[in-house]
Amino acid sequence: MSDNILTSNTIELNAQFSSKEEAIRYVGGLLHDGGYVEEAYIDKMMEREEVTSTFMGNYVAIPHGTEDAKKSVKETGLAVVTVPDGVDFGDGNIVKLLIGIAGKGDEHLQILSQIAIVCSEEENIDTILNAQSKEEIISIFNEVN
């Protein structure tokens, strides 16, 4: 994964949220603050969540914008947030790992496949959730190439 897609500026360890909306807006804010998206993208992330949940199982959610949100993407980026106490994404689906995505063009497809590889191993999810540093998380994602 390219060095500028996931940086320590877009990783937050041990966050706490009272709702999935708060969690998604936070992840979107990291993408915005990192210069990957315009602020409008955050609302498109909320719209996506209303259409279909971004909960993927294994305590993972991958919030991202709707198809028409692409115009709000400046460059491809990721935001990773760990939530050890979990946040309820509805229907009893507890999320402990949020991976926000902003993809320029079709780049999100490659990123999604890399995330799928990382998150298909429960061991990797545990490693990310127990990470003591942002660098540890970056190295886990960089191993998948």
Rank of each mutant, 00 (worst) to 15 (best):
G29M: 08
G57K: 12
K44T: 03
A69F: 10
I94G: 10
E49R: 13
E143R: 13
N142G: 11
K70C: 04
G28K: 07
I101N: 01
G29Q: 05
E136K: 13
V118P: 08
K96W: 12
E47C: 01
I94C: 11
D68I: 09
L6Y: 02
G103S: 12
T82D: 08
A102H: 12
T10I: 06
P84N: 03
G65C: 04
S53N: 00
G57F: 13
E135N: 11
E123P: 06
S120H: 13
K104C: 06
Y59A: 11
E75F: 08
S2W: 13
I128R: 01
I111L: 13
F89M: 07
V118Q: 07
V37D: 05
S113V: 04
E123H: 12
N124K: 09
I24S: 04
S133I: 01
V73G: 05
V37K: 02
E107S: 15
A102N: 13
I94E: 14
V144L: 00
T10V: 05
D43L: 08
Q110H: 12
L109Q: 05
D85S: 15
I111N: 07
M45C: 05
V87S: 01
T7A: 09
A15L: 00
E135T: 11
E107W: 12
G34N: 15
E50M: 09
I128K: 02
G35M: 03
E122N: 14
I62S: 00
I5C: 09
H32P: 00
I11S: 00
K74S: 04
T54L: 03
K71A: 14
V144D: 05
V51H: 11
T7C: 06
E22Q: 08
L112E: 00
S133K: 02
N93V: 03
A40S: 12
M1W: 09
L129M: 10
G28Q: 05
V95Q: 04
N142V: 00
Q132G: 15
S133Y: 02
L97S: 07
S113A: 10
A61M: 05
G105Y: 01
E12A: 11
V27E: 03
G34W: 14
P84K: 01
V144W: 09
V80K: 01
E22L: 01
S120F: 10
D126F: 11
E123R: 14
D33C: 10
E47P: 06
E49M: 12
C119L: 02
I99D: 03
L31V: 09
A23H: 12
K104Y: 10
E123Q: 14
P84W: 00
M56V: 01
S139D: 12
G77P: 08
I128N: 06
V37A: 08
I117S: 15
N4P: 02
G100S: 05
G35Q: 00
G90T: 00
A23E: 11
I128F: 09
L13S: 09
I128T: 00
